[in-house]
């Protein structure tokens, strides 16, 4: 079921793009470009869901600055259960579904997993993986594509990435080269997490946000450092698109807020 509906279509879409760019158009580094294009495509498809999730997070954040919400917090300081009941009542009054931000995230999961699985499988560099990969390929995809040419810029996308720079042979940790992609993944993951996680006023939520801001970049950075660079490329592109998306959404929201203020001021009686 998972393979038929999600994984196989993604694997074959990736191969289709690779075939178009590489064997058909003769583009060098076609597999790297195929990963980039495919990630953009998937991000575009899931854009409405991401927008909805970010809007919902934003609404929840704004609500926390609302006078009524603050009053509730103050009033039910020592009674957690009562506080929760009152909060739910307020959500209902204002027509907000506090879980509406989760649904788009949950729906995105299979797509993210599928994309990830497709990239991993296409990077088969050993017999068991290649044999497994063969089961996912549609008969319409020419078998002459196999094995995929995994060279992209200075990387072999099936191997961990290191940029060889002369004169580093004696430098500790850098003798094998500089892990450029891993560094970019750490930075972009940090920026993306920062941009998409609303600032927290304090308490448990704030702690968790801080933990995520620190550990998520390190965590993905470590995997980008130690696993096939095709995955690191996917992490990087996905992060960059996430950052761009978050910036655009923030600007759009800011413009709307300014617009609403202007309308409100104009509507007020003069004097």
């Amino acid at each position: 079921m998972w393979d038929t509906l999600i994984l196989n279509p993604m694997v074959n879409a990736l191969l289709f793009i690779y075939n178009l760019l590489g064997p058909q158009l003769g583009l060098a580094g076609a597999f790297g470009f195929a990963i980039i294009l495919f990630t953009i495509l998937i991000r575009l498809i899931t854009l409405p869901l991401t927008v909805k999730q970010q809007q919902s997070t934003q609404r929840m954040q704004e609500l926390q600055q609302d006078k009524r919400f603050l009053k509730l917090q103050e009033k039910n300081k020592g009674n957690k259960q009562k506080l929760q009941e009152e909060q739910m009542k307020l959500y209902r009054e204002l027509g907000i579904n506090p879980f509406s931000g989760c649904l788009p995230t949950v729906i995105q999961f299979p797509i993210i997993f599928g994309l990830y699985g497709a990239v991993i499988r296409a990077l088969a560099h050993a017999p068991v993986q290649l044999l497994e990969f063969s089961k996912h390929i549609y008969s319409s995809i020419p078998s002459t594509l196999i094995p995929l040419d995994s060279r992209f810029l200075w990387m072999d996308l099936g191997q961990p990435e290191r940029l060889q720079v002369g004169g580093l042979s004696g430098v500790p940790f850098l003798a094998q080269g500089i892990p450029v992609l891993a560094i970019i993944v750490v930075i972009t993951t940090y920026l993306q997490t920062k941009l998409t996680t609303p600032p927290s006023p304090g308490g448990q939520g704030a702690q968790m946000t801080q933990v995520m801001n620190v550990y998520m970049p390190l965590f993905l950075g470590y995997f980008a450092y130690s696993l096939a660079s095709g995955l690191a490329l996917y992490f990087m592109v996905s992060n960059l698109l996430g950052i761009a998306q978050a910036i655009v959404l923030k600007r759009m929201r800011a413009n709307r807020t300014v617009g609403a203020k202007v309308v409100k001021e104009r509507a007020l009686p003069k004097g």
Partner: peptide, 15 residues
């Protein structure tokens, strides 16, 4: 100090 509503950090936690 105001405790952040845990529901609001759910999407990020899920990600």
């Amino acid at each position: 100090m105001i405790a952040k509503d845990p529901v609001s950090i759910l999407p990020t936690s899920l990600l």
